[in-house]
Simulated scan of single mutants.
Amino acid sequence: MAVVTAHIESAGYRGRPDVIQDVHFEVAPGELVGLIGPNGAGKSTTIKALLGLLPEVKGEITFGDGKAHYAYIPEHPVLYEDLTLWEHLELAASAMGLKGDEFQQRAEELLTLYRLTEVRHHLTSSFSKGMQQKIMLVLGFLHKAELYIVDEPFIGLDPKAIRDFLAMLDRERERGAGVLMSTHVLDTAERICSSFLLVSDGGIVASGTLQDIREACGLPEATLFECFTALTEEE
């Protein structure tokens, strides 16, 4: 069973209800789907539709068996300036229903992985943008979800943090979690994604494996970047 299935006839905002149209896809357990497209193509609107943040949505979105948990890692850090890193973790754990040893073990593991142990009791407003982005990764992975929705995760991360993030994604996929990841870093996406959704002008112009994308644009040996350019310029 897919961890998420989306059949979106249209979705958008008040006054603009059809920013995206006919967006249909699913993410299977263990799959990493790259959501690719130029600025303004509809990637963020698609993600907001999945998260239930849009006032106008026609269609159906189903998460697994209806009880599946998902985690969202946004492009820009969303933090409370008067809370420490540890207080953010405690707040998130309370919302997720994580308690006691389970929370403590997972939090310690993630703080160690992203080298944030020594600053756990510091206010997050004092952190650099890169450190704040690491906090969003820690919060996103605090609860082991069935689906991770990740928006432009590489912005602000140093190479070691990117490596650790990708390794974490691999471990989560191995246990059966699915990932939907929006990114402009196409060379990395080509290397790590199992399939792609290419979005342009509010709709999906191609989907599937890299080979499927190549066939859609008639370029059998092309890179993802070359396919992306060919398909979006056609629009």
Rank of each mutant, 00 (worst) to 15 (best):
G178M: 01
T232Y: 08
L113G: 06
T124N: 04
W86V: 08
V57D: 06
Y70C: 06
L157N: 12
I213L: 01
V3E: 06
L186C: 05
P220K: 02
I8E: 01
T209H: 00
L139A: 07
S44F: 07
V199F: 09
L85E: 07
S200I: 04
I20Q: 01
R175F: 03
E108A: 15
V19K: 02
M168K: 13
N39S: 11
T46H: 03
L180D: 11
F141H: 09
P220T: 01
V27T: 07
E235V: 10
Y13H: 09
P77D: 03
I149P: 12
F196E: 05
F127T: 05
R171Q: 14
S195I: 04
V4L: 12
L53Q: 15
V4E: 12
L111F: 06
E172M: 07
C193I: 00
R106L: 02
D158G: 08
D187K: 13
D18E: 10
T112E: 13
V33Q: 11
I192P: 07
K48A: 11
V119P: 02
C217M: 02
R106N: 02
V57R: 05
S194K: 09
Q132Y: 05
I36Y: 10
M168W: 11
R171W: 07
E109Y: 14
K129R: 08
D22W: 04
L169Q: 14
T112M: 06
H143Q: 12
G59V: 03
E190R: 04
I61C: 09
I61G: 10
E56K: 10
G15I: 03
L139H: 06
Q133A: 15
K134W: 09
F225Y: 13
R214F: 04
L54S: 05
L169T: 12
E26R: 15
R175P: 00
C227P: 05
G202A: 08
E190P: 05
L35C: 07
R115Y: 10
